[in-house]
Amino acid sequence: MHMRARRKLFLLTLIATVFTGMLSAVFNPLSAKAKEIQAKPHAVYKVDTDKKLVALTFDISWGNKTPEPVLKILKEKHVTKATFFLSGPWTVRHPEIAKNIKNMGFEIGNHGNLHKDFSNYPDSWIRQQVQLSEKAIKQVTNVKTTLIRTPNGDFNTRVIQCLNSMGYTVIQWNTDSLDWKNPGVSAITNRVLNRAVPGDIILMHASDSSKQITQALPQIIDGLRAKGYQFVTVSELLTQAKVKTQVQ
């Protein structure tokens, strides 16, 4: 091929490449931005979807009086999909309840070891705490956790980067039931039913500190179903559309 022909071919190839890039930018203008957002450290609060799906999530770090009634309600209401975030010490102290959560088919996530704010401690301490709870949950339930809800929902960019490097996805919530404040059964129920949206992650507790959740939970389940919602695990929710995140 002559030099002139080679140059012509090179110029045509370059023009085609530029033109393809321009078309991509026109018809998919958010792709680069979406990739940029997804690349940043983030916690997941909800999923952007039109499907009426919600994830019921329960944190457990203390007690044995509330967890079993919560599990009983879920069984009676035929709720087979929910996600429980367990602390390491609680799992060790109450292995039969933890095993029951697993055997009932519910998803299990990590809720840390000591219930302290991660952002107040160095990465080495965070890794140690997560590994301790991960080991406890694995030994009791044979589940290797990949989702984590940090104690008190506390995190910053550094904490998320540390947890991501350990293979964890940080899960927050979009609707907080505030059941841990024990504001009254109606207040808990109405807060969830009024705030829940498609793709929601709903925060509740199955610790003994949440004294009214067992009365509110049946109403929450019935109310959400009446609105047309279906229950899925957090992992199932994450497969839906684009994840709504918050970068710290």
Results as ranks from 00 to 15, higher is better:
residue 76 E to G: 12
residue 90 W to N: 15
residue 146 T to Y: 12
residue 145 T to F: 12
residue 59 D to S: 07
residue 71 L to A: 12
residue 100 N to A: 01
residue 18 V to S: 01
residue 216 A to F: 10
residue 178 L to N: 13
residue 101 I to P: 03
residue 166 M to N: 13
residue 45 Y to P: 06
residue 106 F to Q: 02
residue 103 N to D: 08
residue 161 Q to F: 11
residue 167 G to H: 06
residue 152 N to T: 07
residue 143 V to H: 04
residue 30 L to W: 02
residue 207 S to R: 11
residue 176 D to N: 04
residue 21 G to N: 01
residue 62 W to T: 02
residue 6 R to G: 08
residue 187 A to I: 01
residue 209 S to M: 11
residue 248 Q to M: 04
residue 81 K to Y: 10
residue 144 K to R: 06
residue 116 K to Y: 14
residue 68 E to W: 04
residue 211 K to G: 07
residue 188 I to N: 11
residue 78 H to I: 14
residue 113 N to T: 14
residue 15 I to P: 12
residue 80 T to M: 03
residue 149 R to W: 15
residue 10 F to N: 00
residue 220 I to A: 05
residue 45 Y to C: 11
residue 114 L to W: 15
residue 67 P to V: 12
residue 189 T to K: 02
residue 56 L to E: 08
residue 65 K to Q: 13
residue 212 Q to K: 01
residue 82 A to V: 01
residue 129 Q to Y: 03
residue 120 N to F: 01
residue 50 D to K: 09
residue 226 A to C: 07
residue 127 R to W: 05
residue 82 A to E: 00
residue 210 S to P: 07
residue 77 K to F: 15
residue 207 S to C: 11
residue 145 T to R: 04
residue 146 T to G: 02
residue 138 K to S: 07
residue 45 Y to K: 13
residue 2 H to T: 13
residue 46 K to C: 15
residue 90 W to Q: 15
residue 82 A to G: 07
residue 28 N to W: 09
